[in-house]
Amino acid sequence: MPAEQIFTNARLVTADRVIDGTLVVRDGLIAAVEEGRSQLPQAHDLDGDYLMPGLIELHTDNLEKHMTPRPGVDWPSASAVLTHDAQIVAAGITTVFDALSIGDVNPRGKRMQQLPIMLEAIASAAQDGHTRAEHRLHLRCELCHPDVLSVFRDLVEHPLVQLVSVMDHSPGQRQFALESKYREYYMGKYHLSAAEMDAFTTEQKANSRQYSDKHRRAVVEECQARGLAVASHDDATPAHAQESAGFGMSIAEFPTTVEAAQASHALGLSVLMGAPNIVRGGSHSGNIAAAELARHGVLDILSSDYYPASLLQAALQLAEQDNDYDLPRAIATVSHAPAKAAGLHDRGELRVGLRADLLQARVKQAQPVIRQVWREGNRVF
């Protein structure tokens, strides 16, 4: 990496406006954000493309599909992590929180067995300098699983863990208030027979009654003691939002109703929704559309969830929809807002003194084309 880099003839997306100008990087940090073109011969001409902060992804399950690319196929973990990382950085994501699920709701699933393998593979690749994006860990705690607390305590001390979310996917509440939707989703996803589904539903309800509340309290208390950011999941009512705020949570992941999102936002939680929800025009599980929350002004963060390339596309679409999100505010949902919610104050904006995590993109027929990506001034794509 040169000591100084100059990027000019770019449309710079700052926190509050878009500038036709020049950005200077010195020693991996942003040194200047200026209007106008540089006449220096060493300046890199970006040909009028957008130059944005590198994207920050707080919740992605993308690694799982590379660990198990087909049912019954276990892929070598080191290769899976590098393939995942390549997809992440090609989507313009320079900081990613890989979501690792503690407690598998799939009766035939292998998440619990894969968990330590995935964690070690991510940590080893990052330590060896093989990853191009910066990888952090997001522990997703399925509260109604009997073993979630013991496994959480085994993993929470890992230095890459910086975000924890708590969730209860049992039927009859939150994401699956309608039990019919629960049956439709899990029978379709896991190919369960009617009898298997009946037994699974009964077991999940019983586990929720026995474990969910006490596990939520215990996980949150341990996160607070360690200064870790905590997210709620699938809050459906203002009472759920009040509970999450009372626990000191900073993020409300995927609220299922406008009322829950409004209450969360008012209580200071950053409302996170799926970027695929924006791109597809609605929720795949029948809950509130992210665009509807944007129309109410209570959409704070977008997450690619299961499709990394959706992140920038969704932000650009958000800026074109009927709401109060201009391009800088829309880009903040995938950069500054997630950085702030996760306690990362050194990145997420084009601002002097912050890390030069950068993304060059051109938009062709409403489709973003990512041309270059830099992490701390080093080109990684």
Rank of each mutant, 00 (worst) to 15 (best):
E4D: 13
L12R: 01
V13P: 00
T14R: 08
A15S: 15
V18Y: 07
G21Y: 09
L23T: 09
V24I: 13
A31G: 02
V33R: 02
E34I: 04
E35M: 07
D45N: 14
L55Y: 05
N62R: 04
E64Y: 06
P69A: 10
P76F: 14
P76S: 05
S77M: 10
S77R: 12
S77C: 10
V89P: 01
A90P: 09
T95V: 15
V96S: 07
I102H: 06
G103R: 01
G103M: 05
G109L: 08
K110V: 14
P116D: 14
I122M: 12
A123K: 06
H130N: 11
H130A: 15
E134W: 08
H135S: 09
D147N: 15
V148G: 03
R153C: 06
D154F: 04
E157G: 13
P159E: 12
P159S: 11
L163F: 04
G172P: 02
A177L: 08
A177G: 15
Y182Q: 00
K189W: 00
E196V: 03
M197F: 00
M197C: 10
M197L: 11
D198C: 08
T201D: 00
T202S: 13
K205H: 07
A206E: 11
Q210H: 09
S212T: 13
E222L: 13
Q224C: 11
D235A: 04
A239G: 07
A241K: 00
Q242M: 05
G248W: 03
I251S: 03
T257P: 04
V258Y: 06
V258K: 06
E259H: 02
A261W: 01
A261Y: 02
A266G: 09
S270P: 00
S270I: 04
P276N: 04
P276I: 02
V279F: 07
R280V: 03
H284Q: 13
S285Y: 05
S285N: 15
G286E: 12
N287K: 09
A289T: 08
A290L: 11
E292T: 15
P308K: 06
A315Q: 11
Q317H: 06
L318H: 02
A319Y: 05
E320V: 11
Q321C: 06
Q321E: 12
D324N: 15
D326A: 12
D326R: 06
P328W: 09
T333L: 03
L344M: 14
H345K: 06
H345I: 02
R355I: 01
L359Q: 01
V363H: 03
V363W: 02
Q367P: 00
V369A: 09
V369P: 01
E376N: 14
V380G: 10
F381E: 06
